[in-house]
Nucleic acid binder design. Structure first.
Lengths: 110, 110
DNA sequence: TTTATATATTGCAATATTACGATAAAGAAT
DNA sequence: ATTCTTTATCGTAATATTGCAATATATAAA
């Protein structure tokens, strides 16, 4: 085995899992933090910023892009990456909905 | 290789990645959704609810517990699981901080 | 005590992820 | 045209994850 049974879960559940999974690595969190800090969309700088080789960073960027968390735009011979707030907002909303749902139920357990 | 270089990143980054990673599987999202729905902390029911074998569910529960997202309490011969809002709140706060940071910068890119 | 019920652990196979060196691709600079 | 710069891709090794059958553990019920 080893393959996730995505077909057994709802689209919403798979979508949230995909987003969360993309954030599930410290290098990718660091990339987000950096993009947030510099705001302007530099790219090669990320390689300098992280303690990882260029192909590894490129791979992490690809995963963030696939999950829709960042966008990339060609700019000359370099590529400008920046955050895609839509995706991040979806995850934030999901977390928020969990919290507010639980709040209204003043949970009686544990 | 294959091992994540956690030692090169900040504690905050590793913490967020750990939380997100725990949410990075549809089965674990489904477990959270279910715990939220039933509120009261049933456990064996999760096995009935999910399209996965008991050992697989047990493993997912273990991962959620390790990440601090759920708590388990022995109750007779069964175990009562429920959500740990502290952990979920941390992730929600992180997402929210990204969004509000970006908001204040009216990002000029892509 | 024996049996049933509930959950965890072990062991294993299939697959996925992480990391990087080597190399390719493509525009910029000379 | 050649070289430099920037990023992506390929190939591969190490490790992690997913999933389950079999089994262990532990309490409840009989």
């Amino acid at each position: 085995m080893g393959a996730t049974k995505t077909d057994h879960f709802t689209e919403q559940q798979n979508a949230m899992a995909t987003l969360a999974k993309a954030l599930g690595h410290p290098a990718r969190i660091a990339i987000i933090d950096y993009l947030l800090k510099v705001n302007a969309c530099i790219c090669g700088d990320i390689v300098n910023e992280l303690p990882l080789a260029q192909p590894t960073v490129s791979q992490h960027l690809k995963e963030l892009k696939n999950a829709g968390i960042i966008k990339g735009e060609i700019e000359g011979n370099s590529i400008c990456y920046c955050l895609n707030m839509d995706a991040l907002q979806k995850l934030a909303q999901y977390c928020q909905s969990i919290i507010s749902t639980q709040d209204t139920q003043n949970n009686s357990c544990c």
